[in-house]
Design a protein around this nucleic acid. Sequence first.
DNA 1: CTTGACTCTTTAGTTGCTACAGGGTTTCTA
DNA 2: TAGAAACCCTGTAGCAACTAAAGAGTCAAG
Lengths: 160, 160
Amino acid sequence: MKIGELAKATGTQVETIRYYEREGLLPETSRTDGNYRIYGEAHAQRLSFIRHCRSLDMTLDEIRVLLRFKDAPTENCGEVNALLDEHIGHVAARIRELRSLERQLKGLRDLCQEARDAAHCGILNELARQGSEGGSSAAGHVHGAHGRSVERKSINDKRK
Amino acid sequence: MKIGELAKATGTQVETIRYYEREGLLPETSRTDGNYRIYGEAHAQRLSFIRHCRSLDMTLDEIRVLLRFKDAPTENCGEVNALLDEHIGHVAARIRELRSLERQLKGLRDLCQEARDAAHCGILNELARQGSEGGSSAAGHVHGAHGRSVERKSINDKRK
DNA sequence: CTTGACTCTTTAGTTGCTACAGGGTTTCTA
DNA sequence: TAGAAACCCTGTAGCAACTAAAGAGTCAAG
Ligand SMILES: [Zn+2]
Ligand SMILES: [Zn+2]
Ligand SMILES: [Zn+2]
Ligand SMILES: [Zn+2]
């Protein structure tokens, strides 16, 4: 198959496939006379594996480790289990952070019940106060507070 | 005060302060004869405001909106409240996503109790299966699953 | 033979910083 | 008063994981 067919088969964007190849997650394929990449079933499976891992928010580095084990079927998989445990820890840590954030934000929101002039808005005034450290600094790799898909979409929609 | 003192006073890195200026979140300041930026109390407060918002995982664009209201004290703050509600929605949406992720990951983890050879690892085999869509695609801007601070730290620690 | 759909490589943009490099300025100390 | 340390300046590049676009080539259908 050609790259577009692989893309359709796996629900991946063409550019992402080429990106994974550059990053060494997918092997370089053979090419047609016209220099088109050609893929087989094995590539589709490997790509599905990667996308499945990504849908679980693993980093490409984490996925690289898992692929090493997939490529070495006789090795002991203990490290796989450990990696998964760690990643579950990353997710759990981020959930805790976000819950604390949510509490803070709701407390902040309560400071302004009905709209008035900005100078007397309880929210703006509270945000201007000094102190109030308590930033999130836990030990995980689940980051940010902002979804990818939707944010991009709204940005993209701005063009024309 | 000079930029380093402002940095210390607010717990911000010097480069971050210059970055905010480039991004238009902080105004361009006057300079000394030697071309050093000089700041006053108002700058410190504005920077505290920004950092406070950032600690609540708002984007710089969200913060820009809030600053517009801070700079226009006579305007009605209804939009501030709406923005906060939306952002709380972002955080809540991401929490839901991550909880679903956590469930999936724990289910996956249960597929391999004791380490064996990779070819028979229930985790690797499940990850290789097709289908299993259900990616996170909710409507928020809280992203990723990987913490910033710690990840960076471990990277930084690698130098020497 | 032309149109259109597809593919190729390379490069730049996204977010919110962080880290240099290669200078200049100020301040402390000997 | 010289020299060094500590600070500041601008400009550029890097991080993660893509996404998009420019400019060119390839291939199938009509
Ligand atoms: Zn992880
Ligand atoms: Zn208000
Ligand atoms: Zn938000
Ligand atoms: Zn296993």
